[in-house]
Design a protein around this nucleic acid. Structure first.
Lengths: 170, 170
DNA sequence: TATTGTTATACTCTATAACTATA
DNA sequence: TATAGTTATAGAGTATAACAATA
């Protein structure tokens, strides 16, 4: 997970082992960029809003659903297991940012919604978040950003739904 | 950490909220690509070699240091705390891939080295790893790879050593 | 029976701090 | 005192599985 580890990594660092293909350099750099930005986001969410990425993500889900979302919806949308959604939601409820409301017609389910305070807090976070991201890419011209977006699109395409390797031993 | 969460994220997904700047789309895609590839690497290291990324990274460090590295060196190079290096090393020792040798002149320190078996295993892993990475980028021509590498270089430049936000509350 | 959600547990990866042995 | 390494503990972030209540 650590960037500089790979920077110093003989297998991954082409400065030291020129025989390794360019792809390794490219991968290293891609990973470094993503980690740099993500670490920054986490640190700032923590430092400025005392929150975490999953909590931010959950609130982002709710922001556009004033009517609320069920726990199962959140689980699907966030691609996270149900137990985790319960935990994240519990934290947000404790902070008064989110509330569980009864769903009529199904007494098993809750509708999770932002509270008024939650909406307020989220708006501030989302504005800051947007600025951080804009900053992160301000080294690129709009033209370059577009090119980068396109190239990453191809990478994404080639890598999505990659076949999971069946375990050979276990 | 989850890719599709952000895909479905109203704040981050420009398909839904066109008023959000292109940078958010770009960030989302960058993150998705990095996670796709990294998840794949982890799954394959696990599935084919029953190992983890930190274990692989530590062995990669040792591969080019036949004379061995001290725990403190590993800690610095991997950018990970000393306690963690102890844990990772313990696992590798238990597997017979790595050994702690006495350092003469300092009885506090160890020299950690790959065993013969460790070298063998690592060679196989490194070859496979290289192939996985080459595969990950085979959707791009060499020309495109070079362009991507260059653009990511600019992003990296603009984001490295970003000032850490001083905590405001705590 | 199937589904919704919670609880319990565990695993990976990381950090800090207290501690031991040596320098 | 300072350094090398270990141990203990904690905290994100994730997963699975057993369970309760309801459908």
């Amino acid at each position: 997970m650590d960037l500089e580890a790979r920077l110093a990594d003989p297998v991954l660092d082409p400065q030291r082992h020129a025989e390794h293909p360019e792809e390794l350099r490219l991968w290293l750099r891609l990973l470094t960029c993503a980690q740099l930005v993500e670490k920054n986001l986490r640190a700032r969410l923590r430092g400025e809003f005392d929150t975490t990425l999953p909590r931010f993500d959950l609130m982002a889900q709710l922001e556009r659903r004033p009517e609320g979302m069920k726990m199962s919806d959140l689980s699907r949308r966030m691609m996270v297991s149900g137990g985790n959604v319960t935990g994240i939601t519990d934290q947000l409820v404790a902070e008064g940012l989110v509330e569980r409301a009864a769903v009529d017609g199904d007494r098993r389910a809750y509708s999770v919604r932002l509270t008024a305070k939650g909406r307020e807090v989220f708006d501030a976070m989302a504005r800051a978040h947007e600025n951080w991201i804009v900053q992160a890419f301000d080294g690129l011209s709009p033209r370059e950003q577009k090119t980068l977006h396109g190239l990453l699109g191809k990478v994404k395409q080639a890598n999505r739904a990659e076949p999971v390797i069946p375990k050979q031993n276990a």
